[in-house]
Design a protein around this nucleic acid. Structure first.
Lengths: 176, 176
DNA sequence: GCCCTAAAGATAGATATCTAAGTTGTTGAC
DNA sequence: GTCAACAACTTAGATATCTATCTTTAGGGC
């Protein structure tokens, strides 16, 4: 029946990724990275969400939940749930430090610290694999372009927030 | 108290995005894109997940669920839930076409079709905004590099799947 | 010193995505 | 023609992320 075959043909069209808009390309690349790394992390019993914070804590042990959120570029509820799970699993401990009774700081346990040797190579492997076939110059431009894109979009977010309904910040008050 | 201040200093360190690994940069860029576009879609009452499929259907109305999954690079359960929701909202209709009683094809309703004029400019706006300040040559290299990265990682997935526990495909049988 | 606002965190509920496993329909080997 | 294997879809349940809202603590203006 002609109908069906036509519909199939459209679907199997070979498309060049390069014709896609940048947003889609970046989204695809991010998903591919996630899947590739997650596959590897899963074999070590680690989830992606926890990995994000482990990685930061390996470099900066003892950060507050807010500071971790900023470093990871994630919201606090996200950080909160991940840290709770990590505490349950014995990867970190949460403690208040000094006189400030609001801040919860996260400290790696021995177990959390020791995971580094097994997990970090997986990330490096994925990274190297992804860049195979690109010249140093191309990678340099890629980094630079991504950096610009991120800054542009963060700027957009800040401006929209100050204009918009949400986030009754000091900035929006100044505009009145 | 020295302890607390030290911890804060570490957190507020100004970091250059360019020092990050590519995987992180791409993930950040994708999240920024998503937030930026979602902000805009929300003002029109649209969600990101539905947008993905609407966009494809505007170009290729009547695709099957599987074909849509492939085009969107998403799994079938993801597609299924999005399409169900879209059907409830009256944006699409699902029908079986011809003699094949398994395939569900998705067809835009008038309502779904008419959204295009309002939504598409939002995506273009985000895209243009993100690329501000980059030269044509830089954008060209960005596209190319992303294309390579995606292909590399897809290749990795295929190989891992054929090696690994999951996906008992024909490929893995050939290797035995 | 008291009170209001802001900061830090916690909780609830929504969306987008995945893997695993079940159902139903199709097809090819014999 | 029957049956096993595969294809397309569905359902269930997990993870990662978000916005909105609430609680508790800290700090500043008076």
């Amino acid at each position: 029946m002609v109908d069906e075959n036509m519909l199939e043909d459209i679907a199997s069209e070979q498309e060049s990724y390069q014709d896609e808009r940048i947003a889609r390309l970046i989204r695809l690349a991010a998903r591919s990275f996630n899947r590739s790394l997650q596959m590897r992390l899963t074999t070590e019993g680690m989830t992606f969400g926890q990995w994000i914070f482990l990685r930061i804590l390996w470099e900066h042990d003892g950060l507050s939940q807010r500071a971790l959120s900023e470093k990871a570029h994630l919201t606090e509820p996200t950080t909160h749930t991940a840290l709770s799970r990590m505490e349950d699993l014995g990867l970190i401990e949460r403690r208040k430090v000094g006189s400030n009774k609001r801040r919860q700081h996260a400290f790696l346990t021995r177990k959390g610290r020791e995971l580094r040797d097994r997990l970090e190579p997986l990330a490096i492997e994925t990274n190297d694999l992804a860049l195979a076939g690109l010249s140093n110059e191309e990678v340099r431009v890629l980094r630079h372009a991504l950096d610009v894109v991120i800054r542009n979009l963060e700027q957009d977010e800040v401006e929209s927030a100050s204009r918009g309904v949400r986030v009754p910040s000091t900035r929006s008050l100044q505009q009145i």
